[in-house]
Design a binder for these strands. Structure first.
Length: 891
DNA sequence: GCGGACTGCTTACCT
DNA sequence: ACAGGTAAGCAGTCCGCG
C-alpha cells in the first residue's frame, strides 16, 4: 500500500536527516525508499462502476493506461490495455511499396502493415490505405528525427518508380486519443472492470430521459437520432463527488519582487497549505531560525504543523499527492509542481521514481491522481467569456477569487521570507482556500464543466482543462471520423484543395470579410424590441451543410449551389460531418438543455447540472464557426469560415429588407441582431415566421427595452429595460480601464436614466445629469478626489513584457518601465495602474504618484469624451454644461 | 523646425 | 492560438511651409 511505503520513506528520510552534513544529497542511499506508486493493488481484475478520468501511454508496459475514479472508495485505479491495440499511422502506399523502404523495415519500432478500407472525405471516394503499425508511439512520431511518419515521405520519392504522391495520415494524433477513438471510449463516463476487461456501464439512471430527448427529434434522419442518443447518454449521466485537495506552496526568495525559478528550485519551500473536500485544512510550515510565531489567529478547524526539515515537509506534500484522486492548483503546472519536483530531484537527490509528479514540457501531471491547474482553465478565453460571462478580467488568483467567490487574496506588506509563521500560514492557506473554492461554487460547477467537456470532446480531464476550444472541437470531430471509418485529412491537404479566401476584410490583416454592423440611428428611442437569430453561425453551418468536405466539393453538379458574395459552392450530394454534428449539438442545446436549465420544477441539483451542460455546449457552439478560420485548428478550412460569415451577412440583410417591406423601423443591428422601434406583436411574429420559412432559421425576440440611447457610434449603446435595469454596451464609461473617478459619475447617470419612464421624464433627468457632470468637473478643477490619486488611476493590462514593445511605447508601458526601474518584475497579463501627470513623460505609476502632480486638464478631457457618447443623443453639450458653471462662478 | 494630417499600434469592447 | 468589426487614445511619420 502506498501509505506504508510512505511511512518507510518517511523513516528513511528521517534517518538521513540526522546527519545532513555527512551525506550530501546526491549520495543518499535511496535503496530503502520504495517507489511511491505501487502498481499491483491499483490495477484490479474487478472494479465496481468507476469514472474514466484520464488516459496515457504506459512506456514500461507499452500499452494504453487508464485512470478510473471509483466514487465509493474515492480512489483511483489503473487499467492497462490487454487487447494489443498499437499505435499506427496511415499511408497511401501499398505494403508492397513500403517494403522497399529499408529505413522503415529496419526501424526498431516498426511492427507490421495492414491493409484497410477508408472513406476519403476530400475526394468523396473509398480508398485502400495501408496502416503502418508500430511498437510504440514514439516510433510513429514525437522524436526529433527518424520517425516512421517522416521516413516514408522522405525515403520513398528517392526510390525508383515514383508515380503517386506519398501521403501519411493520422500520424500526429496522440496515442491515447487514438486509443480512445478506436475503442469508442468516453472519458468522464462510467466503466467497470470485469475479469480484467474494461466494460462500459450501459444502463444509467438516465435511460428514461434519453427516450424523452429522442422524442424531441422525432422525424429526424436516423443519423441525427444516433448522434442525439449518443450525446444524451453522455450528458445525462450524473457527475460523481470529486474527492480533491487544493495545494499551494510558498518559497523563500531572497528578492521579494521576483518569483523563484522553478527549474533551478534554489530556495527552500517554507510553507504548504492543503484544503481538501474531506474537510482537510492544513498548513505545514518549515521551522526556520529567527522566525517568530506571530499573533494572528487561525480558524479553529485549521491545523498548523511545524516541520523541522524541508525534506519532511515535501514528503508530507507528496503524501497528499498520493492520497487524493484530484489535486487542484493555481499555476501548478508552471510553478508549484515543477518547483517541488525539481527541488526533490536536484536538491535532495531523490529518484524520479520516488517523486509522485510527472513533469512534461508545459504540464505537471501526477502519477496517481489527476492534476487540474485552474490557472490554465480560467485563462481559457472561451471559458472566461461564455462560461463565466467575463466576470473576471485579470488572470490572477486574487481577481478570479474576488470576482467569482468574493474571497480576496490576502494582502502582504512584508516580503514572504520575513513573515511570521502565522502570517505566512494564513496567507498561503487563503490561496489554497480560494483555489479549492473555485471548484465548489455553484454546486461544483467547475468540476462538472470539466467533466462535461471531457465527455463531449473525448479528452481526458487533465487535457480538457488545459487545452483550448479548438482542441476540444477537433478531437470530437476526430472521434467521429474514426467512428465512421473516415480518413482524417491533413490540414495542409484541406488548404491546398479548398484554397484560401476571396472576400476582403474591413480590418487590415484579417483573412476574410466578417459580420455586418448596421449604422445606428442616433437619439433616444422608446419601445425597442431586439430580435436575434438563435445561435446564428451554428445554425448556418447546420442549414447550409457547411464543412471542409462539402465546401467546393469535387462534384460538377454542385457548383451551382453558390454562397452569396463568394465563388464558393456547397455540396448537394453528401452531408458534411461538421454540419451534422454542430447542427445536432445546437438542436440539443436549444430544444433540451437550455429549457431544462431554466425549468423551476426540477430539483436544484438537476437544474444545476443542466446549466453546466448548457454552458458547455454554448462554449463549444460559439467557437464552432471561428475554428474554421483559425490556422491552429486541425481541420482549418478558411472557405468554410468565409462562407459562414457570408451567409450570416446574407441572413441579416434579407431580414432587414423584410422589415422595410413590413414597415418596421430598424434602428440598429449587429451580426445576428436587429433593433426594432415600435414593432407590433403581429409584425414580430410575421418576421419570425418569415425567417423560419425563408431562411430556415429561428429569429426570436431576445430583449425588450423601455427605451434605448444611441450615439452615431456602432457597438455603443445604452438600453433601459421595463424593470428599470440598465444595460450598457461598449461605452467608455463602462470600460474597465477608465478611472473610478470618472466611472462613478457614469454610474450615477446610468441610475438616473433607469428611472426615466416616458419621454416627458427626460427633462428632469437631463437637469440632474447636467448636475452630475458639472459636479464631477468642479471636483476635478478643485482637485477634490481624495487623500491620494487612487481614484484617478487608469488600469491597463500589459499585452506583453514591457521590453517587447518595439514599435511604440504606449502610456501604460511608460508607467511599467518606471516600475521596472524600481525593481518590479512585470510580465504579460499584469495590470498597470497609472495616473496622468504634468511632467514628462506625462504618466506615472500609481505607486509613485501624488496628488500635486496630477494633470487635471487631461482628466477633464477624459470626462468629456466619456460623456459625449451619451450627451449628443440626449441633446446635451459638454461644453455648455461646464461653461454654465463658469458663469455661475462669476455670479 | 513646427504643426496638422495621416497611419499604425495597442487595448478594450461587441457579436 | 475560435473569428471579424468598432472605438478610442496615443506614438510616430510624412509633408508642406520661403
Amino acid at each position: 500500500m502506498t501509505n506504508r511505503n510512505l511511512e518507510d520513506f518517511f523513516k528513511a528520510a528521517e534517518k538521513v536527516e540526522k546527519k545532513p552534513t555527512e551525506s550530501p544529497p546526491a549520495e543518499k542511499p535511496p535503496k530503502e525508499r520504495k517507489n511511491l506508486v505501487s502498481q499491483p493493488e491499483k490495477s484490479p481484475k474487478e472494479l465496481p462502476p468507476s469514472y474514466f478520468v484520464s488516459a496515457s501511454y504506459h512506456g514500461g508496459k507499452k500499452c494504453a493506461s487508464i485512470k478510473l475514479y471509483e466514487p465509493e472508495s474515492e480512489k483511483i485505479y489503473f487499467w492497462y490495455d490487454a487487447t494489443g491495440h498499437k499505435p499506427y499511422c496511415l499511408t497511401n502506399l501499398p505494403a508492397s511499396e513500403l517494403k522497399k523502404i529499408s529505413r522503415l523495415m529496419s526501424h526498431q519500432g516498426f511492427d507490421r502493415f495492414e491493409s484497410v478500407e477508408k472513406y476519403d472525405p476530400l475526394l468523396d471516394q473509398q480508398a485502400t490505405i495501408t496502416k503502418v503499425v508500430a511498437k510504440d508511439p514514439l516510433a510513429i512520431g514525437g522524436r526529433p528525427s527518424g520517425c516512421i511518419r517522416d521516413i516514408i515521405p522522405e525515403e520513398y520519392p528517392k526510390l525508383a518508380g515514383l508515380d503517386q504522391p506519398v501521403k501519411v495520415w493520422e500520424a500526429t494524433i496522440r496515442y491515447y486519443q487514438s486509443y480512445i477513438y478506436d475503442n469508442d471510449l468516453a472519458p468522464g463516463m462510467i466503466y467497470r472492470i470485469e475479469k480484467g476487461k474494461l466494460v462500459p456501464v450501459k444502463r444509467g439512471p438516465s435511460e428514461d430521459t434519453v427516450r424523452e430527448i429522442l422524442k424531441l427529434f422525432q422525424g429526424e434522419p436516423e443519423e441525427i437520432l444516433q448522434l442525439v442518443e449518443m450525446w444524451a447518454r453522455l450528458l445525462e449521466y450524473p457527475a460523481p463527488k470529486f474527492r480533491r485537495v487544493a495545494l499551494d506552496i510558498e518559497v523563500a526568495s531572497p528578492i521579494p519582487t521576483r518569483v523563484p525559478d522553478p527549474v533551478e528550485a534554489a530556495y527552500q519551500v517554507i510553507c504548504v497549505s492543503l484544503f481538501g473536500s474531506d474537510g482537510k485544512k492544513k498548513i505545514l510550515v518549515l521551522k526556520r531560525e529567527g522566525v517568530k510565531e506571530g499573533v494572528e489567529k487561525l480558524p479553529s478547524d485549521v491545523s498548523i504543523e511545524y516541520c523541522d526539515s524541508e525534506e519532511k515537509l515535501i514528503l508530507k506534500i507528496f503524501e497528499a499527492l498520493e492520497d487524493y484522486p484530484f489535486v487542484l492548483t493555481f499555476n501548478g503546472d508552471d510553478f508549484d509542481l515543477r518547483y517541488l519536483y525539481n527541488r526533490a530531484l536536484n536538491h535532495f537527490g531523490w529518484k524520479r521514481s520516488q517523486i509522485p509528479i510527472e513533469l512534461g514540457r508545459r504540464v505537471g501531471l501526477l502519477k496517481y491522481g489527476v492534476h487540474i491547474d485552474l490557472y490554465k482553465f480560467f485563462f481559457n478565453r472561451s471559458i472566461q467569456i461564455y462560461a463565466f460571462g467575463r466576470k473576471y478580467r485579470d488572470m490572477t488568483l486574487g481577481d478570479v477569487g474576488e470576482a467569482l467567490l468574493g474571497l480576496p487574496k490576502l494582502k502582504l506588506d512584508t516580503p514572504i521570507s520575513e513573515l511570521t509563521y502565522t502570517q505566512l500560514g494564513k496567507y498561503c492557506f487563503r490561496d489554497a482556500e480560494i483555489t479549492f473554492k473555485l471548484t465548489t461554487f455553484d454546486n461544483d460547477l467547475v468540476m462538472k464543466l470539466i467533466l462535461a467537456l471531457a465527455r463531449i470532446s473525448r479528452m481526458p480531464m487533465e487535457d480538457v482543462s488545459r487545452q483550448g476550444v479548438s482542441r476540444w472541437i477537433r478531437n470530437f470531430l476526430h472521434h467521429e471520423h474514426r467512428r465512421r471509418n473516415t480518413l482524417i485529412p491533413n490540414a495542409e491537404d484541406i488548404l491546398t484543395l479548398k484554397g484560401a479566401t476571396v472576400t476582403k476584410a474591413v480590418i487590415k490583416g484579417k483573412k476574410y470579410k466578417g459580420a455586418i454592423v448596421v449604422e445606428p440611428v442616433p437619439g433616444v428611442h422608446f419601445n425597442v424590441k431586439v430580435m436575434d437569430f438563435a445561435s446564428l453561425y451554428p445554425s448556418i453551418i447546420k442549414v447550409h451543410n457547411l464543412g471542409y468536405q462539402s465546401i467546393r466539393c469535387p462534384h460538377k453538379e454542385c457548383k451551382d449551389n453558390k454562397v452569396p458574395e463568394t465563388p464558393h459552392w456547397i455540396c448537394k450530394k453528401r452531408k458534411a460531418l461538421e454540419s451534422l454534428l454542430i447542427g445536432a449539438l445546437r438542436d440539443l442545446r436549444v430544444r433540451w438543455y437550455k429549457p431544462r436549465s431554466q425549468d423551476k420544477t426540477l430539483s436544484n441539483e438537476l437544474r444545476s447540472w443542466y446549466k453546466v451542460i448548457q454552458s458547455a455546449l454554448k462554449v463549444i457552439l460559439n467557437a464552432s464557426y471561428g475554428v474554421f478560420g483559425a490556422e491552429s485548428f486541425g481541420l482549418y478550412c478558411p472557405p468554410v469560415a468565409e462562407a459562414t460569415a457570408a451567409l450570416g451577412r446574407h441572413a441579416i440583410t434579407q431580414t432587414i429588407n423584410k422589415t422595410q417591406e413590413l414597415g418596421i423601423e430598424v434602428i440598429y443591428g449587429d451580426t445576428d441582431s436587429i433593433f426594432l422601434k415600435n414593432a407590433s406583436q403581429e409584425q414580430i411574429s410575421t418576421l419570425s415566421n418569415w425567417s423560419e420559412k425563408e431562411l430556415g432559421m429561428q429569429l426570436d425576440v431576445d430583449k425588450v427595452y423601455r427605451y434605448s440611447v444611441f450615439s452615431s457610434r456602432k457597438k455603443n449603446y445604452l438600453g433601459v429595460f421595463h424593470d428599470g435595469n440598465v444595460e450598457v454596451k461598449g461605452l467608455t464609461g463602462k470600460k474597465r480601464h477608465i478611472p473610478i473617478f470618472i466611472k462613478k459619475a457614469f454610474v450615477q447617470m446610468e441610475e438616473r436614466l433607469g428611472q426615466v419612464k416616458s419621454p416627458s421624464d427626460f427633462e428632469e433627468a437631463k437637469r440632474e445629469i447636467r448636475k452630475i457632470i458639472r459636479d464631477r468637473y468642479l471636483r476635478l478643477k478643485r482637485r477634490e478626489w481624495g487623500e491620494n490619486p487612487d481614484e484617478l488611476a487608469f488600469n491597463v493590462v500589459l499585452g506583453k513584457p514591457p521590453k517587447h514593445y518595439n514599435k511604440t511605447t504606449p502610456q501604460h508601458v511608460k508607467a511599467a518601465l518606471q516600475l521596472e526601474k524600481r525593481g518590479y518584475e512585470l510580465k504579460a497579463g499584469d495590470l498597470i495602474s497609472f495616473v496622468k501627470v504634468m511632467k514628462e513623460p506625462h504618466v506615472k505609476p500609481i505607486q509613485l504618484a501624488s496628488n500635486s502632480e496630477i494633470d487635471v486638464e487631461k482628466y477633464v478631457a477624459y470626462l468629456r469624451s466619456t460623456f459625449d457618447q451619451i450627451l449628443d443623443a440626449l441633446g446635451l453639450d459638454f461644453n455648455e454644461i461646464i461653461g454654465l458653471t463658469k458663469l455661475e462662478r462669476f455670479m
